[in-house]
């Protein structure tokens, strides 16, 4: 059995004096696993990400990243996160500086930083944009640059918040291919684009009302009409069609 990259135990969280966002959450992500995270808006998906990244402080419970406890405020390059709003992510005057930001903060040598910038930019196909200011890029290009900035850190766990939002079909495909090739990374992907999760993930978690309601194979969970409807989600089209075929064949 491969070792765990992320281990979450008894995790609870609430914003000041508000209703609990997460309650006694348990979750383990193993090396190389690609996990989809689904759930209605406000289910706590982004909160979970921020907790894992040490940005928020849990009310109770433990989070371990690569067998080391996550301490809020301590930089952990093993974890890379791509935000839902890419504009939050890109703030350097040029793409090159933005890609170098994480590796530089890791204390790597300039040569190593440069090597990582180059390989991450080639991997994401943004090598021609290196000298451009990120603000001028298209939405798809920005998303790729944001991905490259995370890949350049060599993170072992990627947390992706709605990675395919606002992407056209071409960039969406590029993103899926890019993530599929990354066999060495574990991923937790929060998305309402269930088709993307079906293609990418070997496991899906349904988060709602502060806890995990279901955890298992994507095709099994997402085809469960009652479960999906109960939490305001819909069975993805591709699964509906296969179900229909299944019924027609049987009928």
């Amino acid at each position: 059995m491969t070792s765990a990259v992320l281990e979450v135990k008894d995790l609870s969280f609430c914003y000041e004096e508000g209703r609990p966002i997460l309650q006694d959450l348990h979750l383990t992500i193993r090396e190389g696993e690609r996990v989809g995270l689904i759930g209605p808006n406000g289910a706590g998906k982004t909160t979970l990400f921020l907790l894992a990244g040490g940005i928020l402080k849990a009310v109770s419970g433990q989070i371990r990243l690569c067998n080391q406890p996550v301490v809020p405020g301590i930089f952990r390059p093993e974890l890379g996160m791509v935000f839902q709003n890419v504009n939050d992510q890109l703030f350097c005057p040029s793409v090159r500086e933005d890609l170098a930001f994480g590796p530089t903060n890791m204390g790597l040598s300039p040569q190593e930083v440069e090597r990582r910038v180059r390989s991450a930019s080639i991997e994401t196909g943004v090598e021609k944009l290196l000298e451009r200011p990120p603000h001028q890029l298209s939405g798809g290009e920005k998303r790729m640059v944001a991905m490259a900035g995370i890949l350049a850190m060599g993170s072992r766990l990627l947390l992706l918040d709605e990675p395919s939002a606002n992407l056209d079909m071409r960039y969406r495909r590029r993103l899926i291919n890019l993530l599929q090739k990354r066999q060495d990374c574990s991923m937790l992907i929060a998305s309402h684009d269930l088709e993307v999760l079906l293609e990418l993930c070997d496991r899906v978690i349904l988060l709602a009302e502060g806890t995990i309601q279901a955890d298992g194979l994507p095709k099994k969970i997402m085809a469960h009409t009652d479960l999906m409807h109960q939490y305001g989600l819909e069975v993805p089209h591709s699964l509906r069609r296969s179900l229909r075929k299944f019924y027609i064949r049987r009928g």
Binding site: L50, G53, I55, F75, P77, L79, G80, M81, F83, N85, N87, D88, Q89, F91, F101, G102, T104, N105, M106, G149, I150, M153
Partner: peptide
């Protein structure tokens, strides 16, 4: 919110 988002993203890449 924008600024918080930006600085959070930067912190995840090592900004202090």
């Amino acid at each position: 919110d924008d600024y918080e988002g930006q600085s959070t993203a930067a912190r995840l890449r090592g900004y202090q």
